[in-house]
């Protein structure tokens, strides 16, 4: 049983990075596809399209920060379950927000191409999703401080 909990602990330790990377990759691909399409139909402003399409990159960075905060001198039966719970749940948050952020960014890029004046405000949903990722990051850090080492 102890070995199983230790395995779960390691799983949870790396989950924020792995799931965050998947979320970022997926989100950037969605946003990037829209940015590439928009560049075909625009005579300028390419930088801003590409710039916003990279917004979902932050999820993997948050995942790395969470991993370091969860890192212990040793993973054992005392801390394995906590590492698993915090790591996996925060990882799934990064995965989900990364994908959804990519989708709303693709919509924002597409819409602002037709109506450039809404470019800024169209990024608001993506910013809100970023906020949810930050919530998951901050509270993962808070809880990581109370894990028995």
């Amino acid at each position: 049983m102890n070995e199983f909990v230790v395995a779960l602990g390691w799983f949870g330790l790396y989950a924020p990075v792995a799931l965050g990377a998947i979320g970022s990759a997926w989100g950037c691909a969605l946003g990037g596809s829209a940015a590439i399409g928009a560049m075909l139909d625009s005579d300028g402003g390419y930088g801003r399209f590409i710039g916003v399409s990279l917004m979902p990159s932050s999820q993997v960075i948050y995942g790395i920060v969470i991993m370091f905060s969860l890192q212990q001198s040793s993973v054992d039966a005392a801390n394995g379950a906590a590492l698993f719970g915090i790591g996996v749940l925060s990882g799934f948050t990064m995965l989900f927000t990364g994908i959804r952020q990519g989708e709303v960014l693709a919509s924002a890029i597409h819409a602002s191409k037709a109506k450039p004046e809404i470019f800024g405000i169209s990024l608001a949903p993506a910013a809100v999703l970023e906020g949810f990722s930050v919530f998951a990051l901050v509270f993962a850090l808070v809880l990581a401080g109370s894990i028995p080492s």
């Binding site: 997926w26 691909a29 969605l30 596809s33 829209a34 940015a35 590439i36 399409g37 928009a38 075909l40 139909d41 693709a106 890029i109 597409h110 191409k113 037709a114 109506k115």
Partner: peptide, 18 residues
């Protein structure tokens, strides 16, 4: 989501507003 979706995102985004 299949990769084809990314291709269609690029296609739709490349079409100007009518």
């Amino acid at each position: 989501m299949p990769s084809r979706s990314h291709q269609y995102i690029a296609l739709v985004a490349s079409l100007p507003h009518l």
